[in-house]
Simulated scan of single mutants.
Amino acid sequence: MAGRSLRDDLEDGFNPEINTTPLVDVMLVLLVVFIITMPALQHAVKVELPRVAAAQIQAKPASVDVAIDAGGALHWNDQSVDIAGLERLAADAAQHDPQTEMHLRADRRTPYEEVMRVMSAAQHAGLSRIGFVSDDNTH
């Protein structure tokens, strides 16, 4: 068939265009199926639920703020501490409430090693819930 041109193919009855009729038929069948099944999915039993007066629990887990500045200085709730003091305060907080969260704010110039040292000390003292606080200013 080498040497045949498009004109020869058209004369033989070959049509190089894509026939979209079967695709449209399938789409219409799927549309009908979805139209029929949607009311069945939204059908729900009407039930009048009892009303009760209960206070919502607003208790948030205890949290502490730990900050590390660019020089590596530590601050526990805005109070300057060293790593031993941080570990002692973290152990006290974990003993008081095991679900205490530590919110860690580190200056972006703080060495990664300092951040890991603080996290390790907090985990060693019993604070396992550590979250990082960042600035969402993206301009």
Rank of each mutant, 00 (worst) to 15 (best):
I57L: 13
A62W: 01
R4W: 14
N77S: 05
V33G: 05
T21R: 15
G71L: 06
G85N: 02
V118Q: 01
L49F: 11
A125Y: 00
L30T: 09
A55V: 09
L89M: 02
D9Q: 15
L104I: 10
H75L: 02
A67K: 07
S5N: 08
G71T: 15
L104W: 05
P39W: 07
L31W: 12
I35D: 06
S120G: 10
A90T: 00
E101C: 03
R7P: 00
A44M: 09
V81Q: 01
D78M: 05
P22K: 05
G131T: 14
V33W: 07
R51H: 08
T21Y: 10
W76V: 01
L10E: 03
A106L: 04
L10I: 14
H96Q: 14
L127W: 01
L6M: 13
V66M: 00
A53G: 09
P16H: 08
M38W: 10
Q56H: 02
A94F: 00
H103Y: 06
T21M: 06
S120E: 04
S80A: 15
F34G: 13
P111H: 07
R117Q: 07
A73T: 12
V47F: 05
A125Q: 06
H124E: 07
E114H: 11
D135S: 11
L89V: 02
D107F: 04
L31E: 09
R88K: 14
H43M: 10
R4H: 11
N137F: 07
V115Y: 02
